[in-house]
Design a protein around this nucleic acid. Structure first.
Lengths: 245, 245
DNA sequence: TCGAAGCTTTGACCGAGGTCAAGGAAAGAT
DNA sequence: ATCTTTCCTTGACCTCGGTCAAAGCTTCGA
């Protein structure tokens, strides 16, 4: 009801008459998958949907952490920045991913849309209440947090110890497996981000990212039908390159 | 046995055969701090204590994840390795830290003692049962997981974008704040790990770590009364160096 | 159809940090 | 005491990836 007031604001909001959850195509990927239909209805009554255009910021590092989000479609980046502008992307998120958890009162990272992105939004207070009402949800969230920690540890290994080539190879394999996990074809890997964003994720510069792609193409390990589309031609070779000495 | 007696005499807390939890000096730091005395007793009846000597491995990457742990005293490292031996330490843990959570059936990292370390151990199955019995515990664990994610994101920024000097400065400040959080004096920062371990944590070599320490000492930003003891002489300068351009 | 803006690629050069090597210093063993 | 081992420091040199610069490609709008 109150959400309808949304004017032409940077964050366009809509609330469908029944509930956006009824037509959600990503439910099986999200934390909502752990809920029975009664609990889903309870969740649905507190949700607001949000749409972001490419480049739009959902929240910034240091903003008051008012909401938590669930991506229903689209692609986002989660990043931290330094005072002088250096930026490190901590992760790319897609359909089904949960976003906005924070122990502190402020967000610890910034979140930005790479493509048009749809999210569902809960106020933190509401979400906390729902959480203590629904043990399933809390368990699921704990599992999500644990796999996020595992992913972060893998990223730490990549940034601390891998060469540029190994980072690129690991990245392509990771993207492929992420697509597979979402039920998409894994092979022509789609890259909804620019070279700059890949670089900011892998701790490299644009130029190094580009040079590695070119080298992989010349080795015929990958094909590059378009800058944002990578055909993996030799999976095993790519896997070997992802941890080559 | 001892616990049953305790329940019969809720007001007389002194016991003949006390559980290790009764004398635990780290309880306020651990997930156990969230429990009332009844739940603590329940936890205590399932706990086993473990002692590790410096260099001993608690578990390795790929081992079947049978247990979860809580450090009561000592220092550990959590690391991932590559087939050719390159190693990346994902974090250092100390008294109060929780250890061993994994969504998968295997541990995703290796855990090793830096100093003599005491832990309490639960079987995973038992712990899962305790968890669903005690909502407080689950909430606390979720908070712990979230702050671990925040720490990992900070580490990702450090590894992806900071110079060697910035990494060392950030590391010293982090160690100082960790000591403070444990109620210890923050200033002569104690380093219970070798230069090699600092390097494996910061994505640097032993030599670079040593050279940075030497430079900081020559700048009189720190003092090095012993290799494992760092006196911070200019906090603000160190803070500036931790994100200098 | 043309131009502008933004992304990507490529080349030439350089420097931060890695590698290799050699000494010190401290702690435990004989 | 002396030897061994392990860790730390320092120096000389080199390389991987960053920086700077310029030129292709797309896309989009006039």
């Amino acid at each position: 009801m109150a959400q309808i007031i949304a004017l032409r604001q940077p964050l366009a909001r809509q609330k469908a008459a029944p509930s956006p959850c009824d037509t959600c195509t990503s439910r099986s990927l999200t934390i909502c998958a752990s809920l029975d239909s009664e609990d889903q209805a309870k969740m649905a009554s507190h949700v607001t949907t949000v749409t972001l255009q490419p480049g739009q910021t959902l929240f910034s590092e240091g903003d008051e952490a008012e909401h938590v989000f669930n991506i229903t479609s689209g692609n986002m980046s989660v990043a931290k920045s330094m005072p002088d502008g250096r930026r490190q992307i901590a992760g790319f998120l897609g359909a089904g991913d949960f976003l906005g958890a924070s122990t502190k009162a402020e967000y610890m990272v910034s979140a930005e849309a790479l493509t048009e992105t749809h999210l569902c939004r809960f106020s933190r207070a509401t979400f906390r209440r729902l959480l203590s009402d629904m043990p399933c949800l809390e368990q699921r969230l704990l599992a999500v947090a644990e796999s996020e920690i595992a992913a972060a540890q893998e990223q730490i290994l990549l940034l601390g110890r891998k060469t540029a080539m190994e980072r690129i190879a690991s990245f392509l394999l990771l993207q492929a497996s992420r697509m597979k996990a979402r039920g998409m074809a894994e092979n022509p890997v789609l890259l909804p981000m620019t070279r700059a964003e890949v670089g900011d994720y892998l701790g490299l510069t644009i130029e190094t990212v580009s040079r590695c792609f070119t080298r992989l193409r010349k080795l015929d390990v990958i094909g590059l039908p378009a800058p944002d589309r990578v055909q993996i031609r030799q999976f095993e070779q790519l896997r070997a390159l992802s941890e080559a000495a």
